[in-house]
Design a protein around this nucleic acid. Structure first.
Lengths: 119, 119
DNA sequence: GGTATACTAAAGCCAACGCTTAAGTAACAT
DNA sequence: ATGTTACTTAAGCGTTGGCTTTAGTATACC
């Protein structure tokens, strides 16, 4: 069992630093978009990309290190798929910031209303 | 008027690459969290951080380049605040991926159901 | 005017990135 | 057995990132 993950899944724990870093690169975002449609081999991921297979491999490795992608090798082909938990973790961070900001924005509105009403 | 922004706001256009890159750094995420509470000067942002003011300035510059933060200088103090549109842009990208993934996941469920029913 | 404050600009340093080429290894196909 | 496919590993190379120090400039205060 992996400690600290909650579920017993044998996936790389989600690392928010690495998740955002992974998503900062357009090639890796393209890979994530592709994998949201269906799992794919490294070669399939590489096909539409203007770079060597080795480069794509390195991107996949970073995606795995972030927890965004998991892969499994059968025979000579490695099949990759996205791990939506990592996507959700990033989304949650953003959502928390936004809700904080909105709360403050609402308070600000109330203050302005009170002042406008002559307090 | 800035072309291509839709609204006429004089803010840096949101750059999704730079937004994710900005959020990949824990110091910059801390700054964003701080600015979600209220606007702050560069010195105020620097106070809890274990680095020089110059370093914090550079982080603020990157946050501005990403569109996550805007700032304005009055006298000798530069006041920074978050620009929630950039936060929303990142959230939207993630949300679109997730919805794609869920759609595919639902289709997969249907296929398995059909097979289980003896198709 | 003199001094502290708040930023700004520039240079340098080391580590991490994004890519390449080259040289593997393992699984299939014939 | 030989060849092709699909990855894998390692080295190298130019760029960018995250800091620092140093040396400014522009307020604000006394």
């Amino acid at each position: 069992m992996i400690p600290g993950t909650g579920s017993g899944a044998a996936t790389t724990p989600v690392n928010i630093d690495r998740v955002f870093a992974a998503l900062a690169d357009p090639t890796r975002r393209a890979i994530v978009e592709r994998l949201c449609e269906s799992p794919a081999s490294v070669s399939e991921l590489a096909r539409p990309l203007a770079m060597t297979l080795a480069a794509v491999m390195q991107h996949v490795q970073q995606l795995q290190a972030s927890g965004l992608v998991v892969s499994e090798k059968r025979g000579r082909v490695r099949t990759c798929r996205i791990e939506p938990r990592a996507l959700t973790a990033a989304e949650r961070w953003l959502d928390e910031r936004r809700s904080r900001w909105e709360r403050r924005f609402d308070r600000l509105g109330e203050i302005l209303d009170e002042e406008g009403a002559g307090v």
